[in-house]
């Protein structure tokens, strides 16, 4: 969402590009358009839009993504 942004630099989202197999499912499930496919890999293009909903983590087939709200 472009007009409504929340705090920057707080999300616990981590993407391990090594593990990514390029299925693009994360770009489909993320309601905030955080990911984009660039070539065969997913890239985080809008880190601060992440609301830590976990949809990407749940659906990534190669466990390349993690979010851990509530720790640290």
């Amino acid at each position: 969402m472009e007009d409504l942004r929340y705090l920057d630099d707080v999300s616990t989202l981590v993407l391990d590009k090594e593990k990514c197999i390029g299925c693009s499912l994360c770009t489909e499930v993320c309601p905030q358009a955080v990911f984009e496919m660039q070539g065969e890999k997913a890239h985080i293009v809008d880190f601060n839009a992440c609301m830590e909903c976990g949809a990407c983590v749940n659906n990534c087939p190669s466990k390349a993504i993690s979010v851990s709200p509530g720790v640290g």
């Binding site: 969402m1 409504l4 942004r5 929340y6 705090l7 707080v10 999300s11 616990t12 309601p31 905030q32 839009a49 992440c50 609301m51 830590e52 709200p69 509530g70």
Partner: peptide
């Protein structure tokens, strides 16, 4: 639908 729990905690 856009606030992250980590942000809310902060």
């Amino acid at each position: 639908p856009f606030t992250s729990p980590s942000g809310v905690e902060k």
